[in-house]
Amino acid sequence: MVLFPGSNCEHDVVAAIEGLGGTAELVWHGDRSLHGVDVVVLPGGFAHGDYLRPGAIARFSPVMAAVTDHAAAGGVVIGICNGFQVLAEAGLLPGALQKNRGLKFLCRTVELRVETARSALTTEVPVGTILHVPINHFEGNYTCSPETLAELRADERVVFRYVDNPNGSIDDIAGICSTGRNVVGLMPHPERACDELTGSADGRPLLRSLLTAGLATRPA
């Protein structure tokens, strides 16, 4: 877990990962090393206060060079909410996240449709599965050029779509992956959907996929 000043979902992810039998550690954004982890998660929150634009300053944090190297070597990198915004700003994923259509901060559970099982987050979830996962964002309105959209669709790189688009995202997109399918960004928070007691456990298969993908991509 990369911890930026202003991140606020990192302990939720740590708890969710540990609940699934994984181990997690926090890596400060000023650190230049990832300490040999298998999976990098950029958490939700407001890295560097979201000043200028969400993710605009975080992409220059010292740790991001190591994150970029990890991704280039095929390592798994996941960006959740603000983490997705950081990945988009860093150019690790195409497109950008704009203010929500309607200008409302949205905090509620939404329905997501899994659009591909070929991503680090969805290997254990069949295509077409509807998941109940919370969103919690002001700038989650995904946008990209028509060329990028055509590419994402042709390569099956749209990982999740909203069943009922809450924020104006182009093509109902809630999450996408890189050409290598090892970098995934999504606005909804799977770590907040890990226990029936708090409304939904639909995030668990996503994070299980993540742990599996992490082991599969571990250097021999």
Binding site: L52, R53, A56, F60, A88, E89, P94, G95, A96, Q98, T143, C144, S145
Partner: peptide, 8 residues
């Protein structure tokens, strides 16, 4: 590089 996001 920084002040704008050229995508939007």
């Amino acid at each position: 590089r920084f002040l704008t996001n050229p995508v939007i």
